[in-house]
Amino acid sequence: KKVTINGVEIKFNNPEEAVKFALELAKRLNLRIEFHGDQIKIE
Score class of each variant (00 low, 15 high):
residue 32 R to L: 09
residue 38 D to S: 07
residue 4 T to M: 13
residue 16 E to I: 12
residue 7 G to P: 05
residue 34 E to H: 08
residue 4 T to S: 07
residue 43 E to G: 12
residue 1 K to V: 15
residue 11 K to G: 07
residue 20 K to H: 05
residue 9 E to N: 05
residue 9 E to D: 07
residue 29 L to G: 06
residue 40 I to H: 01
residue 16 E to R: 08
residue 37 G to C: 10
residue 3 V to G: 04
residue 40 I to P: 00
residue 4 T to P: 04
residue 15 P to D: 08
residue 5 I to D: 02
residue 2 K to M: 13
residue 13 N to K: 12
residue 26 A to N: 01
residue 29 L to V: 04
residue 27 K to V: 05
residue 23 L to C: 15
residue 24 E to P: 00
residue 32 R to E: 04
residue 12 F to I: 03
residue 41 K to S: 08
residue 15 P to S: 13
residue 32 R to T: 11
residue 15 P to I: 14
residue 30 N to D: 06
residue 26 A to M: 08
residue 15 P to N: 09
residue 30 N to Q: 09
residue 39 Q to G: 10
residue 22 A to I: 15
residue 21 F to D: 01
residue 26 A to W: 03
residue 27 K to S: 09
residue 9 E to K: 06
residue 41 K to H: 08
residue 25 L to D: 00
residue 42 I to T: 01
residue 20 K to P: 02
residue 24 E to V: 05
residue 31 L to F: 04
residue 37 G to Q: 09
residue 36 H to I: 13
residue 19 V to C: 15
residue 5 I to A: 03
residue 20 K to R: 12
residue 9 E to H: 09
residue 9 E to P: 06
residue 34 E to K: 06
residue 13 N to Q: 09
residue 5 I to L: 07
residue 16 E to H: 08
residue 32 R to F: 09
residue 38 D to P: 04
residue 39 Q to L: 13
residue 35 F to Y: 08
residue 20 K to Q: 08
residue 27 K to L: 10
residue 17 E to G: 06
residue 2 K to Y: 11
residue 17 E to N: 06
residue 34 E to M: 08
residue 8 V to F: 12
residue 36 H to K: 08
residue 37 G to F: 08
residue 5 I to K: 02
residue 1 K to C: 15
residue 1 K to L: 15
residue 5 I to F: 11
residue 10 I to T: 02
residue 16 E to C: 15
residue 35 F to E: 02
residue 13 N to S: 11
residue 17 E to K: 06
residue 7 G to M: 10
residue 18 A to T: 03
residue 21 F to P: 00
residue 40 I to T: 01
residue 30 N to L: 09
residue 33 I to Y: 02
residue 16 E to G: 11
residue 23 L to S: 04
residue 35 F to C: 14
residue 30 N to M: 08
residue 6 N to R: 06
residue 35 F to M: 06
residue 16 E to D: 09
residue 18 A to C: 15
residue 9 E to S: 11
residue 33 I to N: 00
residue 6 N to P: 02
residue 11 K to M: 14
residue 5 I to S: 02
residue 39 Q to T: 15
residue 17 E to R: 04
residue 4 T to E: 04
residue 25 L to H: 01
residue 32 R to S: 09
residue 11 K to V: 13
residue 15 P to G: 10
residue 20 K to W: 15
residue 18 A to M: 14
residue 2 K to D: 04
residue 16 E to Q: 10
residue 32 R to K: 12
residue 9 E to A: 08
residue 27 K to D: 06
residue 18 A to P: 02
residue 2 K to T: 14
residue 33 I to L: 06
residue 8 V to T: 07
residue 5 I to T: 02
residue 17 E to L: 12
residue 25 L to C: 11
residue 30 N to Y: 09
residue 18 A to S: 03
residue 11 K to P: 05
residue 22 A to D: 00
residue 11 K to N: 14
residue 30 N to E: 05
residue 14 N to R: 07
residue 35 F to H: 03
residue 31 L to D: 00
residue 18 A to Y: 10
residue 39 Q to S: 12
residue 28 R to V: 09
residue 38 D to N: 11
residue 3 V to N: 03
residue 28 R to P: 01
residue 20 K to M: 08
residue 13 N to L: 13
residue 8 V to K: 07
residue 17 E to H: 05
residue 11 K to C: 15
residue 27 K to R: 10
residue 41 K to R: 13
residue 10 I to R: 02
residue 6 N to L: 14
residue 42 I to H: 03
residue 26 A to H: 01
residue 33 I to G: 00
residue 8 V to E: 03
residue 38 D to Q: 08
residue 9 E to I: 13
residue 12 F to C: 15
residue 42 I to V: 07
residue 25 L to Q: 01
residue 15 P to R: 13
residue 25 L to K: 00
residue 17 E to C: 15
residue 9 E to Y: 09
residue 27 K to M: 10
